[in-house]
Design a protein around this nucleic acid. Sequence first.
RNA 1: GUGGUUGUAGCUCAGCAGGUUAGAGCGCUAGAUUGUGGUUCUAGAGGUCGCCGGUUCGAAACCGGUCUUCCACCCCA
Length: 456
Amino acid sequence: MAKKPSLPKGTRDFSPQEVAKRLYIMDTIKSSFQLYGFQPIETPSFENSETLMGKYGEEGDRLIFKILNSGDYLNKVDEELFSLKDSAKLTPKISEKALRYDLTVPFARYVVQHQNEIIFPFKRYQMQTVWRADRPQKGRFREFCQCDADVVGSNSLWQEVELVQLYDDVFTKLKLEGCTIKINNRKILSGIAEVIGADDKLVDFTVALDKLDKIGEEGVKKELLEKGITGQAIKKLQPLFSFTGNNEEKLISLSQLLNTSDTGKKGIEEIVFVIKNIQSLGLKSSKIELDVTLARGLNYYTGAIFEVSAPENVQIGSIGGGGRYDDLTGIFGLKGVSGVGISFGLDRIYLVLEELQLFPKKVLENTKVLFINFGEAEALYAMQAITKLRKEGITAELYPDADKMGKQMAYADKRQIPYVVLAGGNEIEAKTFTLKRMKNGEQEVLTMDKLVNFLL
RNA sequence: GUGGUUGUAGCUCAGCAGGUUAGAGCGCUAGAUUGUGGUUCUAGAGGUCGCCGGUUCGAAACCGGUCUUCCACCCCA
């Protein structure tokens, strides 16, 4: 007896219905990417370990899936190293490749390798699977698809403006209204750290601040103290905790807080540019909101930071994120190429659309008409008609076996095929087709031409 | 990686403090209905109780391990 098969943790199969819905989202995103002038590229699902390792911080390295070398890989490890049982030292000896962890770092590698062919500024999009050895949770998997759009080779803040529009465009097309596009700027965070005298603890500071909506003011303060930020410094942060009002009001109080920091002022300038221009251009269904606590993906962002929250009535993490990174390709030896990009979380958008029942019914439609099979001669008559229908682009199929009609009908019903054609001896003789509407059971007799016209 | 949680029929779940042949609803198959699906009625099939080991006269139930699910932390889409 074969053992029941199973899937590795955090992976999934997709049914035809699920694939149809995923393709609907991906096609929507893709069409907007193309509308904004982004071009698609693809990179391998695995890279050399050294390309990925160390690019996502310590935490990231742990979450990268490593691929074991081929052949007798243990035999090549020297005894001493092996007996030390030091995973960090042993791993590079037995694993030289790793699964893609995101699309940004492979893209940076791509830009560096193809720098002489690329026409800058280069706008590329990429929709591919990535893998993380994380513990799964709701909307969190070990294998999932990322949909990224990035621009490299331009410092213009108009890119940021366009990317906000792009988010709005996609969510509008998906009928997902009321998303909040949160925006912040790394320079503002640096400025704050500078002002409170904690520049050296920037990451600790921002990670703690990022949790404000989750653990509250007291929680953040507690974490800051634990990380060694002084009580006096925390006091200076007080304005941030009572940060309310619209974007303009927030910017005014930020300016006061940061008036001694050049970096901070630069950050405010950048944010003002983006927000002001977005307001002039208008958004269709999303809101833009300045959020000084936003700090995610800080490892390489240097300017703008984006994150998109689903409408308030849906409990799920962010459905997209992105930002500006001034020197992403620097890690691969190409200095001075700035990039900015955004990412859509396909799996999470799926969950949100499902919860809000926003998938159009059309997405699940497939075959439009099923021909009942009455036997050899009748099947040929049906196939001739089906061939003509398909020529017109109408999805049609023949039930493959001459089973009892009830069974064939039930099949059409279960597959939600809206029309059934019955063509037996009588119809063949009269050169007609009996068309049945499954919705209400009504039937009518049609000629071939009329059948085509009806189904078009 | 840390702490917790879940696993019984295809699906959703019952199963009282360990005790005979483990149940329900939905779904599935067949028939009532030999050119008509969705409703109804009748009959039927389907379970190594996640897996391995232990305690016990006896384990779906108790204990340990393991895998899986979901949740919190970490981090993140």
